[in-house]
Design a protein around this nucleic acid. Sequence first.
DNA 1: TCTGCACGTTACAGACCGGTAACACCCGCG
DNA 2: CGCGGGTGTTACCGGTCTGTAACGTGCAGA
Lengths: 206, 206
Amino acid sequence: MTDTITTIEEHGAPAPPARPRERIVVQARDLFRKHGIRGIGVDAIADAAGTNKMTLYRHFGSKDELVVECLRKVAEDIEAMWHALEAAHPDDPWAALDAWVRHGAERMICDRRGCDLANAAVELAEADHPARHVIADLKTAYRDRLADLCRRAGARDADLLADTLTLLLEGARVSRQSVGPEGPSARFVRMGQAIIATFRTPAPSP
Amino acid sequence: MTDTITTIEEHGAPAPPARPRERIVVQARDLFRKHGIRGIGVDAIADAAGTNKMTLYRHFGSKDELVVECLRKVAEDIEAMWHALEAAHPDDPWAALDAWVRHGAERMICDRRGCDLANAAVELAEADHPARHVIADLKTAYRDRLADLCRRAGARDADLLADTLTLLLEGARVSRQSVGPEGPSARFVRMGQAIIATFRTPAPSP
DNA sequence: TCTGCACGTTACAGACCGGTAACACCCGCG
DNA sequence: CGCGGGTGTTACCGGTCTGTAACGTGCAGA
């Protein structure tokens, strides 16, 4: 019985996960994020995961498959975020919307790079890349979920509000990569809250 | 006196420009846009420009230099857009703002890929890439120009309006690459006009 | 103890990339 | 006519990339 296994088994898995497959995905997500998908090679990913290229290719038939798997993991994180958000504000959709805005801003603070999904869409220019369907599906699901929240809140035009907030966040995250955190994205929270307030009143203009 | 030169001299330069340097830049912009900067090689660019890699390297010391030159050309187009916009609405900033929104939407219709500057910022993940300064400067200049227009129009909070519109357009162009033209970006004009209207009234809420 | 399976290691293939060297060519200009 | 600069051509270098082959190893479970 080696130490490596006992230590892992003892306290969950806070450090590197035991199985090579998970370690690869974790490291791949990190490195794709830092260097871009085209900017890092599978060899470096396997190395960072403490394994080797051969094992990587035994789990993922190609680099593209690994990319898709990483995007799916991103989706899981997003799903968890939604659950936490709705659990924190079960009966107050407006508060949930406000929390969504603030949460979006918080995520931006730590990250120099923006949204993994959007970045991948930009980087993988080929129109038939296998990741593109995944990206489109996830982004659409995200918007629909936000629209559902707006609808439950009784916003004036829930779909338009959801679309506006979606573009605002998307823009903030990409703007950060162009001009940094001091640019227009710095006032994302104020914008979001102001726009939400606009959609809260029944009908201001005739 | 050869034909090639006379024809060019006669009717401006609608077809391929005469000099290899310009042809290279034109083709590079097109191919960078279609395949991404990392997705196309200098050899293919030189080929598309009807010349060869050696000539390309005689004009541009490196691929990065060519990238920077292309971004500068993008800036020239943006400059021309601003001139046209302000010339069309010399004394009506609100109309100019509205035209800006509609023009932004028009540019999106034809383009599957979004903003060259933002795409480059996403793709060139290295923090010290020579193109990053160019991108940041141009994006900042763009925002400042929009803010100036908002200020001249007498908007309630000109800077916040400019930032909001900037993020909205940025988001629309990147969203298109994720979910296509039927996504949230489809209603960019409505959003922009609604937001501008909000900033036009003196102060709606106490 | 034996067997099977996941994993590690090394080496390699084949392609593409950015960038350079050397040389031939053509054409305008003096 | 000769000259020089911009251009075309070919070949090449060294590196990196994705992906594969072949073989060795160590552990787990029967």
